[in-house]
């Protein structure tokens, strides 16, 4: 038995997300009285792989065949199912991000393994295996039993704390047989967002809505975000108006995020918007309408004109930082 973690690297480097996955798996494996095995697909240096062992994993398998240079869900699902079978994994853990969404369902069918996606809490019980999944766009949790022998869980980013547990890890080649498998899609162009904190990775997000009135008023939002090493976001009307790029749209049909702190500025808090941010640990709202539904979701609020309050908030933050 084992818990297999699919760790994701970006050009050979791990992000906090992969350490969250390991922390979650190590904690769970202790309760299940089993071991964690980490799988890394794509070329990664051993010293980078060793970073995973900081969080308690003792065995790391890598797949560096040229067949995995391009992300092809069919090939990747084959790699995962082969490794999971060989390691006798009873649980496979991955992230509920674009990669996990592309891979986990394929793996589920391949292994006839029940899948729980977007998990943000530890299982309610291990035997039977019962865990809460996000349902009705954040309006409920579905308490779901995974009765199959192999189970797959994808976890929401930023939902589990990192637990440092330095250990010595063995790194091995996974030795999967995928020679001759070729991606059937052809990649024509790759665009990467580099040197930029991704909205989904950010622990602090400063988001503006229609109440900001125009694209020209975004400077204090950007300043506030950068002072806290956070990312900027916006509500749907703002991206529809073209005031901000579509990548920043958070909400039901945009990005679903769960940062530690979410500043909703000039956002009324329609159901569709809350569906994308209700997983945030703290919501801070600034809005001139004290009846706005965003205040029902917020822990801290200021009723007033964002244009007047923001500069003062930026000054106060600067002062607090230099103190």
């Amino acid at each position: 038995m084992s818990v297999l973690v699919y760790t994701e690297n970006w050009d050979g480097e791990f992000k906090k997300l992969s350490f969250e996955l390991i922390s979650f798996a190590v904690k769970l494996a202790e309760e299940m009285q089993t071991e964690v095995v980490a799988l890394s697909v794509g070329k990664t240096k051993d010293e980078e792989l060793k970073k995973l062992s900081q969080y308690g994993v003792k065995r790391i398998l890598k797949v560096e065949n040229e067949e995995v240079d391009q992300f092809d869900p069919q090939i990747y699902a084959k790699v995962l199912s082969e490794v999971a079978a060989r390691e006798q994994a009873s649980l496979v853990v991955m992230a509920d991000n674009n990669t996990g969404k592309a891979l986990a369902p394929r793996l589920s069918v391949r292994m006839k393994a029940a899948l729980a996606s977007g998990v943000s809490s530890m299982p309610d019980s291990l035997s039977p295996f019962v865990i809460k999944t996000r349902a009705f766009s954040g309006n409920a949790f579905a308490v779901t039993e995974l009765p199959t022998e192999v189970k797959i869980v994808t976890i929401a980013q930023n939902s589990f704390d990192l637990v440092e547990k330095p250990s010595e890890a063995v790194i091995e080649d996974a030795g999967v047989d995928i020679s001759g498998m070729k991606p059937k899609t052809v990649v024509k162009e790759v665009e990467k967002q580099t040197d930029q904190l991704l909205l989904t990775d950010a622990e602090i997000v400063v988001s503006g809505g229609r109440g900001m009135r125009s694209a020209e008023n975004w400077a204090p939002i950007e300043e506030l975000a950068s002072l806290m090493n956070g990312a900027t976001a916006c509500s749907r009307p703002v991206s529809d108006e073209g005031w901000r790029p579509h990548e920043e749209h958070t909400g039901q049909t945009g990005k679903v995020i769960s940062p530690n702190v979410y500043f909703a500025i000039g956002i009324s808090g329609a159901t569709q918007h809350l569906a994308g941010v209700s997983g945030s640990k703290y919501i801070i709202a600034i809005n001139n309408d004290k009846e706005a539904p965003i205040f029902d979701a917020a822990q801290y609020g200021i009723v007033g004109d964002a244009a007047k309050i923001l500069p003062k908030l930026v000054d106060a933050l600067k002062k607090a930082k230099s103190a």
Binding site: A140, F141, V143, T148, S278, D296, A298, Y300, G301
Partner: peptide, 22 residues
Amino acid sequence: PLTVIKEFEPPKPRPACKFVDP
């Protein structure tokens, strides 16, 4: 199906908003 939903739970209620003087 492979999964069974045992029941639904509402999300945890958030504490009342603390208002700060604008």
